[in-house]
Write a protein that binds this DNA or RNA. Structure first.
Lengths: 155, 155
DNA sequence: TTGTGTGGTTGCATTATAAAACCAATTGCC
DNA sequence: GGCAATTGGTTTTATAATGCAACCACACAA
């Protein structure tokens, strides 16, 4: 390397996601943000991470359009970090990670929390993959197709 | 630091997942494995990564019970790397990452493939979060609850 | 038995990560 | 207004991870 490899130009959408989210801290920062954390110090104390790398990650997430900075919601002169719609769109990823851990973790008794439906207090159902018409799909029921060129400019 | 932080003892299931999957390459290796890639050299050439780090990642994935080694399916004396059920269980995570990219990527025209239902050839439906009774849930409809202690040993 | 391909490991350079110290601006307090 | 503490970082320095290239052992093919 010399440079840590980047997936920026990669054609695989998974690699492209990892370009933005695929490091140790980004998804945890987003997790906190989804819980309402907004301020630098709050992220730092909740995650217990070094401030320099928090600063770097926040900058990267802002650059990727996942967070945005906004002035003070409490009237102070400081700023806060808010999720954009793109940032909130990562929620299914976090749920998938959580459910994978709940299902396969070797020490599930160490998991402190479960995600529940607020209304009933019951666990959220496992994410499932379905076809457009609602049929439940297993990995083997799916395949990759080249993306159709979306009529460049109708000449 | 001195040591790169580990989330091993963390009580958050998301952090625990990231402990196993949260580096640059692991999910891409799993992606290839889901596509049927089994051999060291095949991973290496498809992913274009350095052999030493591929070796390290494969070892880590095996240690985490995501891959397992098996002898030669083609009769040769070499071994191959196969996904365990735990490994195949990451599929929703990959789908979530893919869909996030498809929905929010700044340059979606660079994405080469779409995931389709094999039977109809139509795109897979977006993952959605539902309650046990089937109600569609938004992030705000959910909350975290402490895990109920699963009756340790009935004294 | 002399190659050739497979599946790694080792050594070295570069980068990323982390802890701690430092610092400027903003508050809080009197 | 003046002073200390808090907030939100940056800098410095050390260690770990990453990547490339070279090397190497074993399998296999001729």
């Amino acid at each position: 390397m010399v440079k840590r490899t980047s997936f920026e130009g990669d054609a695989c959408p998974i690699a492209r996601s990892l370009e933005a989210l695929g490091d140790w801290w980004s998804l945890l920062i987003i997790r906190e943000a989804l819980f309402g954390v907004r301020r630098f110090g709050e992220f730092q104390s909740k995650l217990g991470m070094a401030k320099n790398i928090l600063a770097a990650r926040l900058r990267s997430l802002v650059d990727h359009g996942i967070l945005e900075t906004a002035p003070a919601s409490d009237g102070s002169a400081y700023q806060e970090y808010l999720l954009t719609p793109k940032g909130r769109g990562t929620f299914p990823i976090l749920v998938a990670l959580r459910q994978w851990s709940e299902e396969f973790d070797d020490a599930p008794e160490e998991i402190a929390t479960i995600l529940v439906d607020r209304e009933k207090g019951r666990p959220v159902k496992k994410l499932e993959m379905r076809a457009e018409d609602g049929r439940l799909l297993s990995p083997a029921d799916t395949m990759l197709k080249p993306r159709p060129t979306p009529l460049r400019r109708s000449a």
